[in-house]
Design a protein around this nucleic acid. Structure first.
Lengths: 215, 215
DNA sequence: GTCTATACGGAGATAGAC
DNA sequence: GTCTATCTCCGTATAGAC
């Protein structure tokens, strides 16, 4: 225990920083425990143990187990947003296909680090209203971003851009989740190729009737 | 696992029949309770109550809660298989697009009856080894069926049919689940149109435009 | 074979000492 | 502000009467 600082001028408010670190530690521990045991068996006791914090302390930082998971999901969503921002900072590829590939790959990379945790968050998490709202907000943001992106490319021939955007983003999200979370190590890059091809042909394909093209 | 006594007893056994009915009743009750409360809050007590059976009796028919869900999923998968068989019995559409539409629509129809239960089964169910095995078996079957189907259509220009089939089936399954399970009643038919278009263009699109992943 | 009553156990959450 | 100890709650599963 540090010495009693009563009456001394606060130096740098180490408490706040320490507290923040503890929150982080708990969150990291939760990520690990949820990933290893799943949500139901990922008990707060285990989380506290792994974070090297007593169960009592844990409840000082988070009101309940669910709140931990919500923060975990939030953190994940933010990390995804940050990744997108990073790509935006650099110059985007010229071709539509390049843009699609970047989009898909970013999604993949953002999930590769912890597939098991992904499963918990994407599939096992109890869907509280708060969580749903957060996820939906991020989704809306993504929709807008992608729709705008597609608008810049004249090759896009699809008419119902509203539905198309939703289908595209949804497909990428779901398929990427599935492939990453799959128990067997599928050939991810091959999947990536096909997924990009599918999206690209969808967007640039003939809008209604299909005429076979001669090579 | 129920004991299969077929062929052993030539005499009528009304008990067996009654027992089978009770199993059914419990299963129906479970479907309702899981759909309404989710898996975790869908307790065996509630299930027993709704099935008008005591909790003790319930455990005479099923060893534990998980077994009930497994049987529920099995039943759902079988119903899907039956639907496919039905389409197979009739003549398939001539065009590839028609076939794809039938495939997508069958998937949708097979899920429309109880979206909330679908959510539980697809998302919340604890994935026991047994359950995973069952699901995977069905999936493999579907893969084979679709791959064969695609082989019959010369319009299909995609080269890596193995990966393509998996992408296609996976996409349909996931997107359909998502759309059906979505809280707001999305315009399902519009989504169907776009999904079919995407798959169709993917399969018939130029295969050589997509080079290997760009650096 | 179906019920009632209950045990068993585990998880979330809290109280109070330090 | 962190710990230990504990309490409550509740769901699963069982025992035993009828």
């Amino acid at each position: 225990m540090p010495s009693d600082r009563r009456g001394l001028a606060p130096r740098k408010q180490p408490r706040q920083i320490r507290a923040e670190l503890t929150r982080e530690r708990i969150l990291d521990a939760a990520a690990h425990v949820f990933g290893e045991y799943g949500y139901a068996a990922g008990t707060t006791n285990r989380i506290a143990e792994r974070a090297r914090v007593s169960i009592g302390s844990l409840y000082q930082y988070y009101p309940n187990k669910d709140a931990i998971l919500v923060e975990l999901v939030t953190r994940h969503l933010d990390s995804g947003g940050a990744a997108v921002a990073r790509s935006q900072a650099q110059e985007l590829p010229d071709t539509l296909e390049g843009v699609l590939r970047l989009f898909v790959r970013t999604a993949i990379d953002n999930h590769l680090d912890d597939p098991r945790l992904l499963r918990v968050m994407a599939e096992q998490a109890p869907r509280s209203a708060e969580l749903l709202a957060k996820v939906e907000a991020h989704e809306t943001e993504r929709f807008a971003y992608i729709e705008e992106l597609l608008a810049k490319h004249p090759e896009v021939r699809v008419t119902d851009t509203y539905t198309a955007t939703r289908l595209l983003v949804t497909t990428v999200e779901l398929v990427v989740h599935k492939v990453i979370a799959a128990p067997d190590p599928i050939d991810v890059r091959r999947f990536e190729d096909e997924l990009v091809a599918m999206l690209h042909r969808y967007l640039t394909g003939p809008s209604e009737t299909v005429g076979p093209r001669t090579a």
